[in-house]
Design a protein around this nucleic acid. Structure first.
Lengths: 256, 256
DNA sequence: TCCCGATGAAATGGATCCAGTATTGAAGTT
DNA sequence: AACTTCAATACTGGATCCATTTCATCGGGA
């Protein structure tokens, strides 16, 4: 593995020498991004201890930037740092998940109501495309599950785009940050585990997306808000049920 | 200045040797708390460059924990880090403030509606006491402004307590975190600058608090929610106006 | 056989060191 | 006189070093 330390910062370090342009963008920030992504996707499961030395060698840096990245993840609630023990990926409790989705619903509903008056035709287009993509993914999944992983990716992408557009159309940029911070608290793969098992649910979601799109197109903010709140509420209930089921098993094995 | 490094960790280091109990609670976390507080109160104004060396000597630690603390503050949005330049306290724009208060209103309203059904008699008591304390502070201010700073502290305490109880009574622990993270984005002293100049506004706030308390006592969630949303909306408008006024001046002078 | 204490390995947390970069001020030129 | 260039300075960012703590394994005793 690379070990791109200061000593071998010369250009020909073979394995991904890291562009090394100094201020291309903070190294720490990119580490945060990588780690957050791995945790969100479930590649690094909840409960895992994040060993500084291990991550450092794996990512080809020294422990220092890793330490700072872990601090950021702590501040954001993704990991918990125990004194003299290290950083561990937090496992959200069912209560946490309920609370996340409760607020998610509130904020989505608000975004929907606000968006009904502010949404542009371009955004409506994107919303419509996302809705179509979502439905297509669901159909594809039901027909012949060609490649679950690929469908999952597309489904997730479409879903994210759909809700992102609504939030964006609300005109409140901060809202996007807050919602994202809520999302970070629940690993994505959980969502997929919960929904993947229930195709009827996915179809219902698709129908709800259509109804929301319709309400926004008509400029009916009240309906859009109500639909979005219920949309989130149902997601919450499903998630909680799923987590309860898989929560029986003990905490995941240690990393490495 | 103390400079409590590892070398002079012996007990008799004179000036505030820092209890030095190793895991009493993460050193970095306490630094974060100190810095966040100083920034929130306005003791360290927006725009200030936070010099690592300077803070380190001032706080009696080395640069290392300071660096990690700054990373946490970055993750939380309190400071921005510019590559190879350092950390600077963020200055919220009027747009930021509007957005903060918009979401604040949404979340407070939700908390109020939820709280109406869940609030305990003990919490109602606390709410009532906070309301009284708030009104008393306002009256005191209007009569003979004996000690503005003291009154300001009491006013702020009462206001915080009032809204905290409502959020707590909503039953959603995460809500408290989210609202706090919103609060962090607007320095407290701004609020005071805005409100301190307008006693009539404070009296109106007191009246609104009373109305909210009344609605919650009656279990009228809808009214409580509406009142809270408008409460936040008015605060927003006032804040924005104030920031616009003082925003004319250039960015504050550098620290040190 | 089970429990308790000691020893050793592993990992964190803090400090120091060093390289690279941005800024500031001065000198020199057009 | 103003603008450009260059050098000195200050500060950040990454690496390494070392003390301290925690955990696990092992051995002894009840």
């Amino acid at each position: 593995m690379a070990r791109a330390t200061a000593q071998d910062a010369d250009p020909q370090t073979g394995t991904e020498p890291r562009p090394r342009g100094r201020g291309d963008r903070d190294l720490v920030d990119s580490l945060v991004e990588v780690l957050q992504e791995r945790i969100s996707t479930g590649e690094i499961p909840a409960g895992t201890w994040l060993r500084q030395e291990h991550l450092a060698t794996e990512l080809g840096v020294s422990r220092m930037p890793v330490r700072e990245a872990l601090r950021q993840l702590q501040a954001v609630g993704t990991v918990e740092m125990i004194a003299n023990r290290g950083a561990r990926v937090r496992l959200p409790s069912t209560r946490d998940i309920m609370e996340v989705y409760e607020l998610h619903g509130v904020l989505q509903a608000h975004a929907g109501t606000a968006a009904a008056e502010l949404i542009t035709s371009g955004q409506l287009d994107r919303l419509s495309r996302a809705e179509a993509m979502f439905r297509q993914a669901v159909d594809e999944l039901r027909a012949a599950d060609s490649d679950p992983a690929a469908v999952q990716r597309r489904w997730h992408e479409a879903n994210t785009e759909f809700h992102s557009v609504i939030i964006e159309a609300s005109g409140n940029k901060l809202l996007a940050d807050v919602v994202e911070s809520l999302h970070r608290k629940v690993p994505r793969n959980l969502t997929w585990i919960a929904l993947g098992s229930d195709v009827r649910r996915l179809e219902r979601d698709a129908a709800e997306h259509a109804a929301i799109l319709d309400a926004l197109t008509r400029g009916d903010g009240a309906t859009a808000g109500t639909l979005l709140r219920e949309h989130a509420k149902r997601a919450s209930e499903l998630l909680v049920r799923t987590v309860d089921e898989i929560g029986q098993e003990a905490t995941p094995a240690r990393r490495r």
